[in-house]
C-alpha cells in the first residue's frame, strides 16, 4: 500500500506538472482561452438582451462594502481634483461619436438617475451587495451620437497601476445599452468614497468586479480593441490574462 500511495502521489504530481507544461503551450493556451467565447455566446443566447441582474432589498445590503483594487489613486492630478471636491473634474466622451461631450459631476447628477441594489462579484470569489445611484450610460451615448461602427466603449481611469499605466476597461454595445449599466456617483446613499472609485465608477451588473472601472476619467468609443493597451480590452486582461467577457 505504501508503494501504491507513493506511486499515486508521484503520478498525481507528474500529471499536474504535465498539465502545467501543457498550459504554457501556445496551442493549448489558445484553446483554453477560447472557452471565453463559448461562455459569452452561451450566456448571451440564454439571456434576453435586457435581462436584469438580480436586485435586492435594502435589508440585504452588505454591512460593509469591501473596496478592492486601488484604494486611492494618489496621483498629484487626482489629489488636486479630490481637494477641489471634483468640481474641476470632467468626463470626456470621445472617439467614434458625432458630438463629443465633456460632462461635469453636476451635469451628470442633474440627469435622470437610476438606483439599483445589486451584488458585486469579485473574480476572487467574494460578493458584496450595495445600493448604487448613477446615470444610465445609454442616454449619454445617445446624446453623444454613438456611431454604428463603434463596437466597444473604453473606460479610462485615474489610478496608476505602476509604470504610469492607468487602469482601463471596456464593454461592448450589448452591455453598454443595458438598463442597469450606469455611471455611479453614490454608494449606499452617500457620494462615492475614494476607496470605492470617487467621483464616478462604471457598473456593469452582469459581469465580475474587475469590469466595474473606478475613478473614471474618460469614455472612448472605438471600433476595435487593437491598440488599446495590449489589445485585450482591459488592464487585467492585458497583464494577468483575465477573460475580457467576465459574465462567468
Amino acid at each position: 500500500m505504501i508503494l501504491t500511495r507513493r506511486t499515486l502521489l508521484l503520478g498525481a504530481t507528474a500529471t499536474l506538472a504535465g498539465c502545467d507544461r501543457l498550459g504554457r503551450n501556445e496551442t493549448v493556451r489558445d484553446a483554453l482561452f477560447s472557452a471565453e467565447n463559448f461562455h459569452r455566446w452561451a450566456q448571451r443566447s440564454l439571456m434576453a438582451r435586457d435581462a436584469l441582474a438580480q436586485e435586492f432589498r435594502p435589508d440585504q445590503i452588505s454591512p460593509i462594502f469591501r473596496a478592492n483594487g486601488t484604494a486611492n489613486p494618489n496621483t498629484p492630478a487626482y489629489k488636486a481634483l479630490w481637494r477641489g471636491n471634483f468640481a474641476d473634474w470632467r468626463l470626456p466622451v470621445t472617439g467614434l461619436v458625432t458630438r463629443p461631450l465633456s460632462l461635469s459631476l453636476a451635469q451628470l447628477q442633474a440627469m435622470p438617475p437610476r438606483t439599483q441594489i445589486t451584488r458585486h462579484d469579485c473574480v476572487e470569489g467574494w460578493s458584496a451587495i450595495g445600493k448604487w445611484r448613477g446615470v444610465p450610460l445609454k442616454p449619454i451615448l445617445e446624446a453623444a451620437g454613438l456611431h454604428d461602427n463603434a463596437r466597444y466603449l473604453v473606460f479610462r481611469c485615474a489610478d496608476d497601476m505602476g509604470g504610469g499605466r492607468p487602469y482601463y476597461e471596456s464593454i461592448d454595445r450589448f452591455d453598454a445599452f443595458h438598463p442597469q449599466t450606469i455611471l455611479a456617483y453614490a454608494l449606499n446613499d452617500r457620494p462615492l468614497t475614494v476607496a470605492n472609485g470617487a467621483p464616478l465608477r462604471l457598473r456593469v451588473e452582469r459581469q465580475l468586479g474587475y469590469k466595474q472601472a473606478k475613478y473614471l476619467m474618460g469614455i472612448e468609443a472605438v471600433a476595435t480593441l487593437d491598440g488599446i493597451g495590449k489589445g485585450k480590452g482591459g488592464y487585467w486582461e492585458d497583464h494577468a490574462g483575465y477573460d475580457w467577457y467576465a459574465g462567468i
Binding site: L16, G23, V123, A128, A240, G241
Partner: peptide, 29 residues
C-alpha cells in the same frame, strides 16, 4: 447572498499547496 472579508465565514482555510493546484504556481487567471 453575499460574503466578503468583513462578513462571518463558516469555513476559513489556508491556501491549498501548489502540488494540489493547477497551475502549481498561483495564477487565478
Amino acid at each position: 447572498q453575499y460574503g466578503a472579508n468583513f462578513d462571518a465565514a463558516w469555513l476559513e482555510l489556508d491556501r491549498f499547496p501548489g502540488w494540489l493546484t493547477l497551475p502549481a504556481l498561483y495564477s487565478l487567471a
